[in-house]
Design a protein around this nucleic acid. Structure first.
Length: 397
DNA sequence: GTCAATTCACATGAAAGAGACCACGGTCTAGTG
DNA sequence: CTAGACCGTGGTCTCTTTCATGTGAATTGACGA
């Protein structure tokens, strides 16, 4: 039986010793090549141990450069050392949908961390605000608030929330609050209120991308714990590192690559990861990412995607917003669904651009107007799969 | 030929509506003593 | 008398629509050489 075989191979020797080490939520003991940054941050945060308010800090760097990891590490260390001093460090990721992407929800989440509950909705925001202040003022303490992906806050709402947050110290009598903002987009500092900017980035630290050699180091460290001996073939780590280095030095990417390559190897019942599995892994990651995005997208978005795919199939490479809208209207008619306005479709298209499903750039065709030039950014094989998913979900056959 | 004005086809912004969700407080109802 | 059911009000949140304004260069058309 095939099933038995599959299970057998899982029961038998795995090439993994501890796969968890390669997952993104794993916190390693050491963080290679980040000593300098960690030291800098440490010296900024150190006053907290003496009950002094620390400067607000803005940490910037691409994804997978160890920002979050470093902060988490320092958080642990600080809390270890704090003795009885009333220091609290709260970490909050502002990107998590449905958890912390509005002012209200962030406050609610923070209040929850301080051990109180607020309803998910229904209260006026300023009431939640007051509640938050009340909660943190209950006892004298020093609070360091870590806001990961802080750029999302500004993107989704205005910067007024940050402004309030920066100002909140004036409303506090006992407690003091400092903020650490983590972002992978520096440009976001440019479009926020200068007052907020200057107080948020009292201190600024940049995490540069890892280069290929550093990535190799990181991978080696983890691979030793993650895999059994002599599982990782010649050059495998170097290749993972090279691919990830090409993509902005993203360590998370490199680790994913290694993990998926391992999984694929295991699935083929081999006990040594060879180079060709890295390529496979690279494809698989890309494909999975795109397909899950497509799958989870709402119907209207899928309809737009259908339109884009149809256009790219017949009408050569590039096309424009207006064309997409026309085909989209057609798609809607066939699927018997409501049509959205062109205004909205424009937004949807730019969201696709952000997701990386398409490449779109605004161009001017002079006399013939200004529009977005759109190109599908999905490879052929994935398109077929994507088409299937989307057609099914819209009820086409 | 040169130069500014024109014009297109949208982009981009702001505001506001619709519909879903929810908390809160007041009123009504039925069950209890 | 009281707990619970049932409303109405007022709040948030998301997705949209409506209205308004912006925009970059090909085209046009007037102008001067």
């Amino acid at each position: 039986m095939k099933v038995q075989k599959i299970f057998d191979s899982f029961m038998g020797d795995s090439i993994f010793k501890d796969k968890y080490v390669l997952q993104s939520n794993y916190t390693p003991q050491t963080i290679p090549h980040r000593d300098k940054e960690i030291e800098q941050i440490a010296s900024i945060l150190a006053p907290a141990l003496r009950q002094e308010k620390t400067s607000n800090l803005f940490v910037y760097g691409n994804t997978g450069t160890g920002k979050t990891l470093s902060i988490q590490y320092l958080k642990e260390e600080l809390l270890k050392r704090k003795d009885k001093s009333p220091l609290r460090i709260e970490y909050l990721n502002c990107k998590l949908r449905k958890v912390a992407d509005t002012e209200y929800r962030i406050l609610a989440e923070l209040i929850k961390k301080f051990g109180q509950e607020v309803p998910a909705t229904g209260l006026p925001t300023d009431q939640v605000y007051n509640k938050f202040i009340e909660v943190i003022e209950k006892e004298k303490q020093l609070i360091i608030l870590v806001l990961d992906e802080i750029d999302q806050i500004v993107k989704k709402m205005s910067d007024s929330f940050l402004y309030n947050l920066m100002r909140i110290n004036t409303e506090l009598s006992k407690t003091q609050l400092s903020v650490i903002g983590i972002s992978n987009d520096v440009t976001f500092l440019d479009n926020i209120d200068p007052r907020v900017r200057s107080s948020l980035s009292e201190e600024e630290i940049i995490f540069p991308p890892y280069n290929a050699l550093q990535l190799q180091d990181i991978l080696k460290n983890r691979a030793e714990i993650a895999f059994k001996k002599s599982v990782v073939g010649e050059g495998v780590i170097a290749k993972c590192a090279a691919i990830a280095a090409r993509e902005h030095g993203d360590a998370r990417r490199a680790l994913d690559l290694l993990r998926v390559a391992g999984e694929l190897t295991e699935r083929d019942n081999l006990n040594k990861i060879s180079l060709r599995y890295i390529d496979q892994a690279n494809e698989k990651i890309e494909k999975d990412k795109i397909l899950t995005i497509i799958e989870t997208e709402p119907k209207q978005f899928q309809a737009v995607l259908v339109a884009i795919i149809q256009l790219s199939e017949k009408n050569k490479e590039r096309f424009f917003t207006g064309e997409v809208y026309q085909v989209y209207q057609d798609v809607c008619k066939r699927a018997r669904m409501e049509m959205l306005t062109q205004r909205r479709i424009g937004d949807i298209i730019s969201e696709f651009d952000m997701l990386g499903l398409i490449n779109a750039s605004v161009i001017s065709k002079g006399r013939y107007g200004k529009t977005r030039e759109i190109r599908l950014a999905i490879s052929r094989q994935i398109i077929e799969k994507a088409k299937k998913i989307v057609n099914e979900s819209l009820g086409f056959v």
